[in-house]
Design a protein around this nucleic acid. Structure first.
Lengths: 195, 195
DNA sequence: ACCTGAACACCGTTCAAGT
DNA sequence: ACCTGAACACCGTTCAAGT
């Protein structure tokens, strides 16, 4: 349980490498997870890294595990403190579309790298958990299970599509545009009529 | 204007490398565009490649240009032969969701590699053209310009989201699932009420 | 004009040797 | 137990030399 920024000269542990890797992902995507540059950043050598990890990919997996936990359990635990399903959905969408810049950058970086098997598996699991959580809220609001599942799936598609769009045209996503996306998703889904 | 499969022993041209690269993308994504293996496949050497192209990335750009043309002009030209905007939209969606396997694989491979600047730019342009074409059809159906644009954007998000979802969970996308996606998108968007 | 083959650069990976 | 430093592998890139 060491400090994230390695203030002291204490030895490096797995966690130090993993969180450095996650920071690198937020900064420059998975490609930025380079053993050599991370070693330099942490003041160690490549050989040291290979003591703690089997290879570069298992370091990435460790970083992804941290991200997965933060993107699911942590968020859901927060939402569970709110009793009303509609409010939960609103909070979830708001949180999703107005994420802090670094989290947002991380998620976009992963979406832009789905040819990486580990990233794909992690993103898949996170999407599934979000969808089933949303589906549960829709059910609580009175939709039939299948319709609730459909709606949650649609939200997920829209969310992924809008994130990717903002990555493709970063200019357009500033300010007004993103708020507009939230409205669109809301309007498309929250209306009472069945899909 | 040589044969795609290099039947004869005629010299290699830019196009031969480009279409070999596009085939590689469909097969294994952009990472599969490896100078060394393509050279072997074409019966040439790496040095030969560097006579025709500045580097690996410009080869990828050439392959992307071929894909872009096929994914926009070619499709739109086909749709323009149909007069009714609603039918055009239906055809476009059907074509998008029921693409031939290789085209589909290519598009998914590119979506899974948006950290590649060239792929991102190309995908962005293709998405823009598709959206503005769809918006024009929605306008022809009586929607106001802004609403038409919103609807087309939503379709694009849903489309991208569903493609990515099918890449993440290839199992689930077989057969029934994909047809269901088309229905969902249709139902969500084609209904007469404004969004 | 087009191609070969050898060399180099970059970075992930290995490993014998140190503390 | 943990780390270093040198070596190797892989693949993109360069280039002098061939035809």
């Amino acid at each position: 349980m060491e400090m994230g920024n390695r203030a002291g000269k204490t030895r490096l542990g797995r966690d130090d490498w993993a969180s450095a890797a996650l920071r690198a992902i937020a900064r420059g995507g998975i490609d930025a997870v380079a053993v050599e540059s991370l070693a330099a950043e942490l003041g160690a050598t490549k050989g040291s890294f290979y003591w703690h990890f089997e290879n570069r990919d298992s370091l990435i997996d460790a970083a992804l595990a941290v991200w997965e936990q933060r993107s699911t359990d942590a968020v859901i635990a927060l939402l569970e403190r709110e009793a009303d399903p509609a409010t939960r959905l609103r909070m979830l969408l708001a949180a999703a579309f107005e994420m802090p810049a670094e989290e947002r950058a991380t998620e976009i970086a992963l979406l832009a790298k789905l040819d990486h098997a580990g990233a794909a598996r992690t993103v898949q699991r996170v999407a599934e958990r979000r969808i089933s959580y949303m589906a549960a809220q829709f059910e609580a609001l009175g939709w039939k299970p299948e319709e609730a599942q459909d709606r949650a799936t649609i939200v997920s598609y829209l969310y992924v599509g809008s994130l990717i769009s903002s990555h493709l045209a970063p200019k357009a996503s500033r300010g007004r545009k993103r708020a507009r996306d939230v409205e669109l998703v809301f309007d498309t889904l929250m209306r009472a009529r069945p899909l």
